[in-house]
Structure formats: C-alpha cells, structure tokens
Amino acid sequence: MTSIAEQQEDRAVTEAGAWLARLQRDDVGEDDGLAFEAWLAAAPANRSAYVQSLGVWHEYAAGAEEVTAELARQADRPRPLSRRWVTGIGGLAIAAGLAIAILPGVLSQTASQSFVTGKGQHQRVRLEDGSVIDLNAETRLKVSFVRSERKVVMAEGEAIFDVAPDKARPFTVAAAGRTVRVVGTQFDVRSRQGELTVTVARGKVEVRPGVATGHDYLLTPGQRLAVGATGVEDLRVVDPQEAFGWRIGRLVYRNQALSVVVADLNRQFVEQTEIGDPELGAIPITGVIVLDDPRAVMARLSLMLPIRSVPSDRGLLLLKK
C-alpha cells in the first residue's frame, strides 16, 4: 500500500533525476533555468528531492576515480570482502554520507602541525612515519615529531590513531592531563569536557597520569579506560569496533544517556538538536546510530523511545510523546 505522500515523494525523486539530467545538456540556457525555477516553486518536496539527488551526484563527482577503480575490483570479485565485518557490527544498512578529506603527511623532522575539525567534519591525516590519525568532528590536536619522539597533544575531541611501529621513537598522545604512550598499535582517544576514554584495538597502550593524579595503566586489545572529569577511573572490556564506528559513520551506544547521544550528534551535524524536556535527557540508549542526517536519525530514535522531534529555528527540538 502506498500513501499519497509516498506517491508525491516518488514523483519528486523522479523529476529531480530528470532535472539533474536535463541541466547537463550542452546547450543549457535561460529557458531551462526558468522552467527549473518554476518546478522548484511547485512543491516543497521537489526542492528536497533535488537537494538529495544532488548530494549523490556530487559524491560521484568527488569519487569518480575511486568508484571506477572499485567497479573494476568488484568485477573481478563479485562479493566484496569487508561486507562481513560491516554485518558483524550490527547488520544495518550503511548510510554514512560523511566525506572526509585526506591530507598528505608532509611533516619534516621537527615541524609541528595543527589540525582542527568543525561540526560534521572528519579528517584523515597521514604522517611521515606511516601513522594515520582519523579526526572525529570538533577536534583540535597538534602533531610534533622530534628525533626521539612522535608527539600529539589533543586539546579537545576524539581521534583514532593507527600508529606505525617504531621502537626508537615512541608515539605519545597527551589529553585531559594524561599521557597515552604506545609503540605500534591502533587505538581511539576521546577527550571531551575533561572526560577521557582510551580504547585499544591492537597492540599495547600505556596511560599515565601526567599532570593529573591517578594510576598507570597498560591497556591491551579490547580494553577501554574511562576517566571522568572528577578523576574516577573505570577499566572495562569492550568491542573496539564500537568505539571505532564513528569513522565509518555510525555511533554505537550501550546504556548511554540521551543527552550524551544528542551532544555527539550535534558534533556530527550542522543542524542542531535540542532536548526540550530535561527528563528526556536521562533516557538510556542502546544501539547503533547510522549518521545520515539528523532528521532521519531522530525519526528512527522516536520509533524506539517516548520522544518526538519538531522543527525549531536551530534545527530540531525533542519533546515527550
């Protein structure tokens, strides 16, 4: 059964495709423009369908070379390998529309370089030693390499570090008054509002108090150390892929308060969500959130929770159902 709304949406998507194709004509001109203008004005659904299709169209423009290479690979091997672990993480369809920028790592011996991401931005940084840092949204960090040490200072944010082994030059990350020290490994460091978590996927990671008081920890794969703003330390076993999910556009939560989830979402999207009723902030969330767009995320959450979302001037407002 299809509703009238669905039929209208389907028609808008069909017409949006026709418009994008028509505007590719070699002799596109003012008549096309005026007709396009009239079509946009004819129904609000037209504009949103067009913007949606345009996003996909631009993704193909940005990734033309990579997609062509991938198509050649898929032709050789019809079943893509990494599907398996994607299914492992929750079996949901992926819709991570997040584009990332890759910067070439051109750090000289003693140079230091700063990296900053804003709302909704992810960035991959390749360092000269072969290490890779993936920055989550709203993250500020500085990388400096000297002869005896590879050093990162994270002022705020979250990043996954994939560290190239080099026994002579340990890799350290300073965040929230602690120092994380490794030789060669993969781990996630999150430092938000004075709270620090370190999750290890591979290798061994040492966490030392630094200027803060506390204990020394040697973390092994699958362990997560969380240090609260007040210094309370909590060591537990987790699935590292959960902490690493943001890199592929998904957030994984176990019993996390809605207020924390919304704060995370507000880093990933420019459109901001506010919790209108303080009682709602404490609702525990367990599940995988696919980061496509804030409205779709809230629509899915409201299916599971006693909440509803309404548009506000900043974005969305969450209210009790």
Binding site: A62, I94, A101
Partner: peptide
C-alpha cells in the same frame, strides 16, 4: 594515492557503496 590537500575524497566504505549501487 596521495590526493592534493584541497581535494575532497570519500571514505572507502562509501566508495564501495557507490560502486555497488552503480553495478
């Protein structure tokens, strides 16, 4: 494999999805 600093490229996961959809 090293794109220019200002070139936007897509996450590998997304590239595979785009390729699958094209296929």
């Amino acid at each position: 494999e090293e794109p220019a600093a200002d070139e936007q490229i897509l996450a590998r996961e997304r590239v595979r999805l785009l390729a699958e959809a094209t296929q």
